[in-house]
Each structure stands twice: as C-alpha cells, then as structure tokens.
Design a protein around this nucleic acid. Structure first.
Lengths: 212, 212
DNA sequence: TGTACATCAGTGAACGCGCGTTCACTGATGTAC
DNA sequence: TGTACATCAGTGAACGCGCGTTCACTGATGTAC
C-alpha cells in the first residue's frame, strides 16, 4: 500500500479499489461510503473507478466476493489441525464463523444482503473453498464416525449453520444481552452443537428418521 | 383509512404516518423510502411529519416498535390453543416467527438493524408481550413437563430462537436453495426443535449439565 | 533503433437528482373572560 | 353566548448537501513498420 509506486497508470487499481472499499466499509460500519472516497483512498481521481466497475454495485459485489473468500480461508486455517470426524472440527467451524462475522460486522450486509446473493451466484465463487462446504465435509465425517448413516448431510449442516448464523446475527444486532444477559456465545455454539448431535444419536437409536 | 375525514387537522397523523411508512417499506422492500412519500401517502404536506417526529429516524423507530408488536401479537394468536408444556407450542412459535419474518421481510432490517435495537430498548417496548417472552414461557413449561430441571431456560430459549432466526435470515438472503435445494424450512424448524430437545434429554439422563 | 498511431487508464470539473429538513406562513381549535 | 387570543397542526416552497455518474480531456504504453 505504501510501497506502490506513484505512476499515472496505477497498475492494480481494480484490487486497490476493492481493498479501499473494504476498509471504508469496515471503518464506517455501513455500505454507504462514497465512491469518491474509495477513489481517494486508492489515490486516484473520482472518475477512475468507472474504468474498472460499471457502477458502485459492481464494486460492492467484488468486495462481497472478497468477504466470502476471507471466510473460507479463515475457516480452513482454523481447522487445519483438527482431524475430520471429530466434533471439535464442527464446533471450531461454528466458532470461526461467529468470530469472522462479528469482527467483520460491516461485511454482514454485504454477505447476507442482496450483494451476497449475487456474489455467491457468480462464476468466480469457489464452492469448494466456501465455508459451508467445509462444514458439510466436517459434518459428514462426524456423522460417519458416529455411525449415523442415512441422514441428509446437507440438511444437518444447514441446521447447524443456522444455529451459529442466528447467534451471530442476534449478537450483531446488539440485542443478545437484552434477552440473555451475560451470554457466552462461543460456549453456546459448543453446547448447541453437542446437544444437537446428541439429539441426532438419540433419534437414530430410537429407530431411524421419524419423519421419513 | 378511507373513512378518515379530510380536515385541516388530520387528527391521527402520527399513526397514519407510521402506517404509511410501514406500507412504503413493505412495498419498496427497503428503508429508503422518501419522507415526502410517507407524508403524501398520509395525505399531508411534506413538512407535516416533522410535527410528530423529530426526524426520519424517529419515524423508523416507531415503525420498528409496530413490527415487534405485530410479531408478539401474531405469536400469541398462533399459540392460543396449544397447551403449555407441549413441544408443539415451541415449534409453532418458531414457525410463526419464520412466517412473520419472511412475510414482512422488509421489516427485517428495521427489527434487527440499529433501529430495532433502539425500539427494544425503549420504554414502550412491552417485554411481556414480546415474542421472545412467549418462547421462554413455552420452553420453560416444556422442560418442566419433561422433567428437565436445572437447565437455564433463557439459555435454551436463545439457542432455539437462534436456530429459527438463522433459518429465517438465510431464507431471506435468498441463498438457502443454493446450499440446500428444496429445503422445507417449516419442517426443518420442527425437526431441529425436536432434535435439540431430544439432545437435552439425552444429556440430562447421562448425568446433569456436563459443563457446569 | 526510431517514429506514428491506436489504445486505454487516468484527470478534473461539473452535472443532476433525490431527498431530508427548514422557514415563514395560515387555518382550526379551545379556552379565559 | 360571544369575542380575543394563545396554541399548534397543518401548508407550500425552497434550500442545501451528498454523491453517483458523465464528459471532454490528457498522459502513458505498446506495437506495426
């Protein structure tokens, strides 16, 4: 950022703008940054961004992709040393998701608002690298290890994800202390995951999927 | 709305504006309606709203309170005939929450964004009428009926709420089909709730709260 | 190796529009006497 | 019951600002010959 030489032609303005926008979003805590500010931050005139992005929406979409990419990467790093098949891997993915969402709170709208929908649908969205895919793998391995066959892995994964996403979303809203003073979310993620898995086992041993 | 007489003094402009704003939000699907439109819709000049609300934010906060009130009311109606102590009561609350959030999707930001935080903190927010309080009552009764003493009812309630809130939030984002094609959310709410409760029972019978 | 020229990433200024909010005002209401 | 007057909910016009986007341009780059 400092080492970049000042030339008439920037060289990597597209990425510089994406980063500048990301920073502005994090700093201001909303998506309402001014296009001109992003340009200024990238050291470029106000019209320059339009050489690389059709409009502001296109820039936001690019930032959104970055956000998802960062999530996938973070999740991968956090679980690298936890073997597949252990519940800790599932729990760690949940906790990582939570910290990522909370620490990059300004990205939330970007990821789960309209922009996010487009980013996920886009071609450059790498399914295999996505956080959700990692969760599915971890859940599948755990269910296998526990002898819980015949379950819909996608379904179970979404349910677990929902728990964590819900806790993250409520935390972000700032209302969690109002409903549950002193709540320890990482602990709750740990407990919820175990309780849910325990429930699956219990239902399994009581004779298969009750609603199938 | 039609029966209201046209006089110079509106009579109930405050409420008319709240309703107008709510309609605009629902119609446009966002909070970016114009103050002037709300005034127009209430049949009044552009400056009139400022007699009743300091600024747009104040109006949004009022709409937010209405949204929470509506949720509480809907939840109450939906569960009126289901006895306390039955799991169906908990499940119905979850499903009602889901339909409310999805059908009033434009209210989501209002309820869980910054506005919502303020609305819940406000004096006129009736805790006892809130959807969450109803959930707590239903959960408490169910746990009692199942002989699951010693659990933190608030904690369990928040966890269940999170599951449902997460599913609602992900549904709203439009991404659920992408991750879980053909997902049946009401069914998932039913299943998740039962699985979670089953897990609690199982953990309970295995000897108390493992992390306490 | 040099020159002409196409290409394109930048510049800087300004446009234009949406929209929240204010201002000086006017008409209706209610109450003191 | 009538009149003067304070009060306040409305009006209509306009202000002003933020900001996305465009326009005619200029400087750098690379390539054909």
């Amino acid at each position: 950022m400092n080492a970049v030489e000042k030339t008439y032609h920037h060289g990597d303005l597209r990425n510089a703008l994406i980063l500048a926008a990301a920073e502005l979003i994090e700093d201001s805590g909303s998506l309402n940054f001014a296009m001109a500010d992003a340009a200024r931050r990238a050291g470029v005139s106000t019209a320059a961004p339009y050489r690389h992005f059709r409009d502001k929406e296109a820039l936001l979409e690019a930032v959104s992709q970055l956000a998802f990419y960062g999530l996938g990467l973070t999740a991968e790093n956090a679980t690298a040393e936890i073997p597949l098949g252990r519940i800790e891997r599932v729990i760690t993915l949940g906790r990582t998701y939570y910290s990522y969402v909370v620490s990059k709170s300004a990205f939330y709208d970007l990821m789960w608002g309209d922009m996010g929908a487009r980013a996920i649908g886009s071609e450059s969205f790498d399914r295999k690298a996505s956080g959700f895919f990692q969760l599915v793998r971890a859940v599948e391995a755990y269910l296998d290890a526990q002898g819980l066959q015949g379950l819909d892995v996608l379904d179970v994964s979404v349910k677990l994800w929902s728990m964590v996403h819900g806790l993250s979303s409520i935390t972000l809203s700032g209302k969690l202390p109002h409903f549950h003073p002193g709540a320890d979310v990482p602990l709750m993620i740990d407990e919820s995951t175990r309780t849910f898995m325990e429930g699956l086992k219990s239902q399994h041993s009581k004779g298969g999927d009750p609603k199938h």
